[in-house]
Simulated assay, not measured.
Amino acid sequence: MTKHQAPQIVDLMSSLPPHSEVTTALRKLADGPFRQVALTNSVMHVAEQQLRNAGIRELFDRVMSADSVRKLKPADVPYHAVATAFRALPSEVRLIAAHSWVITGALLTGCKAAFESHPGMVLSPIGRPSARHRRGQP
Rank of each mutant, 00 (worst) to 15 (best):
R128E: 14
P119K: 15
H133D: 04
H118F: 13
V122K: 12
R57A: 08
A98R: 03
K3H: 07
L123F: 04
H118S: 10
K71A: 14
R135Y: 12
H4I: 05
L59F: 08
F34V: 07
M64F: 02
I9V: 10
A97T: 12
D61M: 02
C111Y: 01
K28M: 11
A106F: 01
G120I: 08
A131W: 15
M13K: 07
S65L: 05
T84I: 09
L95I: 08
I9H: 03
S15W: 03
E116S: 13
A88L: 15
A75E: 10
P138E: 14
L26V: 11
I56L: 06
T23D: 13
I103D: 00
S14I: 00
P129K: 03
L95S: 01
S91P: 00
K3E: 08
G136F: 05
A83W: 02
P18K: 09
H133K: 12
L12S: 11
R134C: 15
L72D: 09
I103A: 04
P90I: 03
V93R: 03
L95M: 11
P33C: 11
V69F: 05
L59D: 10
K28R: 14
G55S: 05
T40Q: 00
A114W: 05
V93M: 10
R52L: 05
V46K: 05
V10A: 12
A97W: 01
N53F: 04
F86D: 04
T109R: 00
R128A: 14
P33N: 10
M121I: 10
D76S: 15
R57L: 11
R57E: 09
S91I: 00
P78W: 09
M121K: 15
E48W: 01
L89Y: 07
S100A: 13
F60S: 03
S130Y: 06
P17L: 14
V82L: 04
Q5N: 03
P90N: 03
I96N: 00
S42G: 12
L108S: 09
L26E: 05
L16M: 14
H19Y: 15
T84Y: 02
A25Q: 02
Y79D: 01
L95F: 03
V46L: 12
E48N: 04
A30D: 06
T84R: 12
S91C: 04
I56P: 00
A25G: 08
K28L: 12
P78K: 05
L29M: 15
L89F: 07
P90Y: 00
G105K: 00
E58S: 11
I96M: 08
R62K: 13
L51C: 07
M13E: 10
F34H: 10
P138K: 14
H99E: 07
Y79Q: 06
A98S: 15
D61V: 04
A38I: 04
Q49C: 09
L59P: 05
A6F: 13
A25I: 08
F115P: 01
P138W: 10
R52Q: 06
V46Q: 09
V122H: 15
V77E: 15
A81F: 09
L123D: 02
